[in-house]
Amino acid sequence: GLEHMADEEKLPPGWEKRMSRSSGRVYYFNHITNASQWERPSG
């Protein structure tokens, strides 16, 4: 619920959580730099 939404908002600017269609794993994508990574971004 609300706790999940608050957790999402802690991601650094530009980052969003996405799911890989090929593997079904969650990864993180930065739409500003077009960077993507499996680890949760910090800072």
Results as ranks from 00 to 15, higher is better:
G1W: 12
G1N: 11
G1V: 11
G1H: 11
G1R: 12
L2N: 14
L2H: 13
L2Q: 12
L2I: 13
L2R: 08
L2E: 07
L2S: 11
L2W: 14
L2C: 06
L2Y: 13
E3H: 12
E3L: 11
E3K: 07
E3Y: 04
E3T: 13
E3I: 11
H4R: 03
H4L: 11
H4W: 12
H4E: 11
H4K: 06
M5K: 09
M5T: 11
M5L: 13
M5A: 11
M5Q: 13
M5W: 13
M5R: 06
M5Y: 10
M5S: 11
M5H: 10
A6L: 11
A6V: 13
A6M: 10
A6T: 12
A6Q: 11
A6F: 12
D7Y: 09
D7A: 09
D7I: 10
D7N: 10
D7W: 10
D7H: 09
E8K: 09
E8H: 10
E8W: 05
E8G: 09
E9V: 07
E9D: 10
E9N: 07
E9A: 09
E9P: 08
E9K: 07
E9M: 07
E9H: 08
E9W: 08
K10Y: 10
K10A: 15
K10P: 15
K10M: 11
K10V: 11
K10G: 11
K10Q: 12
L11E: 15
L11W: 02
L11I: 04
L11N: 01
L11R: 01
P12S: 02
P12D: 02
P12V: 01
P12A: 03
P13Q: 07
P13K: 07
P13D: 08
P13A: 09
P13T: 07
G14F: 07
G14D: 05
G14K: 01
G14P: 08
G14A: 04
G14S: 03
G14Y: 07
W15M: 00
W15A: 00
W15P: 00
W15I: 00
E16R: 04
E16Y: 04
E16M: 04
E16K: 04
E16V: 09
E16H: 06
E16F: 03
K17L: 08
K17H: 03
K17R: 10
R18L: 06
R18V: 06
R18I: 05
R18F: 05
R18W: 03
R18K: 08
M19W: 15
M19S: 08
M19I: 15
M19Y: 15
M19H: 14
R21F: 15
R21V: 15
R21I: 15
R21N: 15
R21Y: 15
R21W: 15
S22W: 11
S22N: 12
S22V: 14
S22A: 11
S22F: 14
S22Y: 14
S23L: 06
S23H: 11
S23K: 07
S23C: 06
S23Y: 07
S23F: 08
S23R: 04
S23I: 04
G24P: 03
G24T: 05
G24C: 03
G24R: 07
G24K: 08
G24M: 06
G24D: 05
G24E: 04
G24F: 04
R25N: 05
R25V: 06
R25F: 05
R25W: 04
R25L: 08
R25Y: 05
V26M: 06
V26N: 04
V26D: 04
V26R: 03
V26G: 02
Y27S: 02
Y27H: 02
Y27F: 12
Y27P: 00
Y28H: 00
Y28I: 00
Y28T: 01
Y28S: 00
Y28M: 00
F29P: 00
F29V: 05
F29T: 03
F29Q: 01
F29A: 02
F29I: 04
N30C: 01
N30D: 02
N30W: 00
N30M: 02
N30I: 02
N30P: 00
H31A: 12
H31I: 14
H31G: 05
H31N: 09
H31R: 11
H31W: 14
H31L: 13
H31Q: 08
I32V: 09
I32N: 08
I32P: 02
I32Y: 12
I32H: 09
I32R: 09
T33V: 03
T33E: 04
T33H: 04
T33M: 04
T33I: 04
T33Q: 03
N34F: 12
N34I: 05
N34K: 15
A35E: 14
A35D: 06
S36T: 14
S36E: 06
S36A: 13
S36D: 02
S36L: 13
S36K: 12
S36Q: 08
Q37M: 06
Q37G: 01
Q37D: 02
Q37H: 03
Q37L: 04
Q37N: 03
W38M: 05
W38K: 05
W38I: 06
W38R: 05
W38P: 05
W38S: 05
W38E: 05
W38Q: 04
E39S: 08
E39W: 09
E39H: 14
E39L: 08
E39R: 07
E39Q: 10
E39K: 08
R40Y: 08
R40T: 08
R40D: 03
R40Q: 05
R40G: 01
R40M: 07
R40C: 01
P41I: 02
P41M: 02
P41C: 03
P41R: 01
P41Q: 00
P41G: 02
S42P: 07
S42K: 13
S42G: 11
S42M: 10
S42Y: 09
S42T: 14
S42A: 09
S42V: 10
S42Q: 10
G43E: 10
G43N: 12
G43R: 09
G43I: 13
G43L: 11
G43Y: 10
G43H: 11
G43F: 15
